[in-house]
């Protein structure tokens, strides 16, 4: 009985609090009144995948804070519902709808044609349309840099690559990585493995660990993953066997300091934030936006967690390499083009 009362009281309190917050915030919003309505459609992985989707979610939240936009995000239940989610957002007169992941390409293509007034954006998917902004990343440039880093740090002359799902996007990572390693040490051996061919591959740490241990037994001492949430398996294996691992997408240096050499940053958050900002300022352009090393859309991560692993000379060498890629002095092979 007491407990019920306490809960009721708490409920009342929280209710009145919520009421106050609601009134205050609606006043603020009505004052600023500039916030556009943004719908964010996340893929099956959901906003807590510590990788791709969560990066997009962070970018959108940053926009909520800085730009005062109104955000609503949803997670897809099955691939049939993707289209209906986009459609619902459009029907509710959202100004900008962002789809995360190449799986939504079809849905965005269909729905954008039906709602020409609404702005659409899609990350990683290549869709053309008068109201679609496509956000693409030059993953091969970033992974070239990772390949170079791995070759620099490898003592055995063997490095490894673990891909998530075996698709062209990940092949692009792999090709850049291999070229980067060969750029530093032409004799280096690169071991390549993929976890699977379905969406499950993004969320299978056990298999990633297995592959990592197999590569380590073949003398690999630096391993790079491009496998979303499966990557935690690699970090475990690397920490156990005292070899280096390289993270991907967001900054993963903090996960195992001392083991994670660096991370290849793919700034989905930056891309999402930029898109929202441009729409907010009425400067939205339907175009193919490329994010590369030049504008720091992809980059390598340096922070307190990995600074002891790098000598000043090595850092300089990395940054020089980065500059020469940007300037075009070093050309990075692109799987999409050479295929």
């Amino acid at each position: 009985m007491n407990v019920m009362k306490a809960i009721n009281k708490q409920k009342k309190d929280s209710f009145s609090l919520a009421l106050v917050v609601f009134i205050v915030s609606s006043i603020i919003w009505s004052v600023s009144s500039a916030g556009i309505k943004v719908g964010l459609v996340l893929d099956k992985g959901g906003k807590d995948d510590k990788s791709f989707n969560s990066s997009a979610y962070e970018g959108a939240m940053k926009a909520v804070k800085n730009l005062g936009i109104e955000l609503k995000y949803v997670e897809a239940t099955d691939s049939n519902s993707l289209e209906s989610l986009h459609r619902n957002f459009a029907q509710k007169k959202y100004d900008l709808i962002i789809g995360i992941g190449f799986a939504q390409a079809d849905a965005v293509k269909k729905v954008s044609a039906l709602f020409p007034e609404t702005h659409f954006a899609i990350v990683d998917g290549n869709v053309e349309g008068p109201n679609i902004r496509t956000l693409l990343f030059q993953e091969h440039e970033g992974s070239f840099l990772m390949g170079a880093a791995a070759a620099m740090k490898s003592k055995t002359g063997v490095v490894g690559f673990i891909g998530g799902m075996d698709i062209p996007l990940i092949r692009r990572f792999q090709k850049g990585y291999e070229a980067g390693a060969k750029h530093i040490n032409p004799k280096i051996v690169v071991l390549n493995n993929f976890i699977g061919v379905t969406g499950e591959a993004w969320n299978n740490p056990a298999k990633a660990k297995e592959i990592a241990l197999a590569q380590i037994s073949q003398k690999a001492d630096v391993i790079f993953h491009a496998a979303g949430a499966s990557g935690s398996g690699l970090f475990d294996a690397a920490a156990d066997k005292k070899v280096f691992a390289i993270g991907v997408d967001s900054n993963q240096n903090w996960i195992k300091p001392g083991t994670v050499l660096t991370s290849m940053l793919k700034r989905v958050d930056v891309a999402v934030y930029d898109t929202i900002e441009s729409a907010q300022n009425k400067k939205f352009k339907a175009e193919k936006a490329l994010f590369g090393l030049k504008d720091q859309g992809v980059d390598w991560a340096q922070d307190v967690n990995n600074e002891k692993l790098w000598t000043a000379a090595e850092k300089t060498k990395m940054n020089d390499l980065k500059k020469s890629i940007v300037s075009g002095k070093v050309t990075v092979p692109d799987y999409y083009k050479t295929k």
């Binding site: 609503k72 949803v74 997670e75 239940t77 099955d78 209906s84 989610l85 619902n88 957002f89």
Partner: peptide, 9 residues
């Protein structure tokens, strides 16, 4: 099934 997926939105 439909209603549950729309609840999210």
């Amino acid at each position: 099934h439909k209603g549950a997926s729309d609840l999210d939105l």
